[in-house]
Design a protein around this nucleic acid. Structure first.
Lengths: 237, 237
DNA sequence: TCCTGAATTTAGACTCATCTAAATATAAGG
DNA sequence: CCTTATATTTAGATGAGTCTAAATTCAGGA
């Protein structure tokens, strides 16, 4: 139970550094500036503060080569992620906030959630391990339940699977996907994949030819698939 | 629907100025400093900023003689109060947060509640007009439903009434009152009142002699009573 | 009316988080 | 190996919100 010792801005930086490592394998000044909507010098300044926190460093700074979370930094990031995703699920399930709008609400609420409220929400929701986008919810102790998934773009042609996570937060994009029937738990079958990150054609559910849609590679790579059982069997060596 | 244009600190000042006028009839630098947990010079500085807001003044400053909300200031204060009290009720009803702890949670959440979420919460709760302490919830338009009440200390000996509001936010005090059975909607009868703000003795509910409690005047004045029907009749001229 | 104590305001400094402009480092290609 | 485009960092400024210390004003009593 790490009593989050950081300001709202610090929490936001730590969370984005964590997410960038997850998404891109590293976190650079420029990437952080883009995600946080600030200019690069602001990022450098904040990284310096985080690296010299009086209660011990929250990040490691390799000048000109990006930034890295320490154990303490990871703990804060995971707490924010837990808050964020619990809130998303809570808003979605208990207040009917639409799927594509929970993210921005959670972004403001996550920083003012007490441990007590976090606990009550988790209990109310039955201690869930995934949020409405399929993103994993870390446990109180910072443990993330592992799940086997591949990106839609990495699936072989003809494969069938269940949409288990959508790795993309922007409202309009989520709305568009939902309008095609591409929502969590839906089954999809790959019809074709153009090479080099090209268009992916998928059939949604068990529907006929009008449930076939073409997706750009940039979009498709954010759709994560848990392989259907028979496929998973087949892939065992 | 006044899109709250103020920072968190500004919102907090405006709210406390409003509450001080309600509680004490005026808001001085010292009173604000006490309630906000800051030093008097900080209050003076903030009042100056609020009085010279670029979109028009939020307060009127009478130097050395306190501060006053403008129409715009009142609108922001009422929006915060609406947020605060809706959140209190929401936490109490839907998450089982105890009566004496909702206040501090609401104090942090009220500043990050979107209009959309405010609306959803209000709808979910059936557009309530009172919170768990009996404090009125302003409407979206800033209208407060009027209710006839008197302080427990102002009731004549022998009078019976229903506890309708507890005008005091501190957790331990609320816990103590609850432990005596002095909770919202409970009926009380005044047994005796010592003069000059002294001890008030009340019988709680319809119970026997062990449901009689003595309350200090400072405590009793925060308990607001709606007169029981027959009493109300009797008081009509 | 004057004096004194308390409340209030002014003056000046500090922290946090941001910015712009300028200097510097890195990596990639000729 | 040098050159150049781009990323990063440094330097210095700004605004919000707070503080302490000192000056000022007010209000009540002698």
């Amino acid at each position: 139970m790490p009593l989050s010792p950081a300001s709202v801005a610090e929490q936001e930086y730590l969370k984005q550094i964590y997410l960038l490592h997850e998404d891109e394998g590293r976190a650079t000044t420029q990437m952080l500036a883009d995600r946080l909507g600030v200019k690069p010098p602001s990022v450098t300044a904040m990284i310096k503060r985080l690296a010299e926190d009086e209660d011990g460093p929250l990040v490691r700074h390799m000048p000109y080569h990006g930034v890295d979370l320490t154990e303490r930094g990871v703990a804060v990031a995971l707490e924010m992620l837990r808050h964020h995703r619990l809130i998303e699920l809570f808003l979605s399930e208990l207040l009917g906030v639409p799927w594509d709008r929970v993210h921005e609400e959670a972004d403001r609420l996550e920083h003012v959630l007490s441990e007590d409220l976090e606990e009550r929400i988790a209990t109310k929701l039955g201690n869930p391990t995934v949020d409405p986008h399929g993103d994993p919810i870390p446990s109180r102790e910072g443990v993330i339940m592992p799940r086997e998934m591949v990106r839609l773009t990495e699936l072989p042609v003809g494969a069938t699977g269940v949409i288990s996570r959508i790795d993309q937060q922007e409202g309009p994009v989520l709305q568009y996907l939902a309008s095609l029937g591409l929502i969590l738990e839906e089954t999809v079958t790959v019809q074709s994949i153009a090479p080099f990150g090209g268009v992916v054609t998928v059939r949604v559910g068990m529907g006929g030819p009008d449930s076939v849609h073409a997706l750009g590679g940039d979009l498709a790579k954010h759709i994560l698939i848990a392989l259907a059982c028979d496929e998973a069997e087949g892939s065992r060596r």
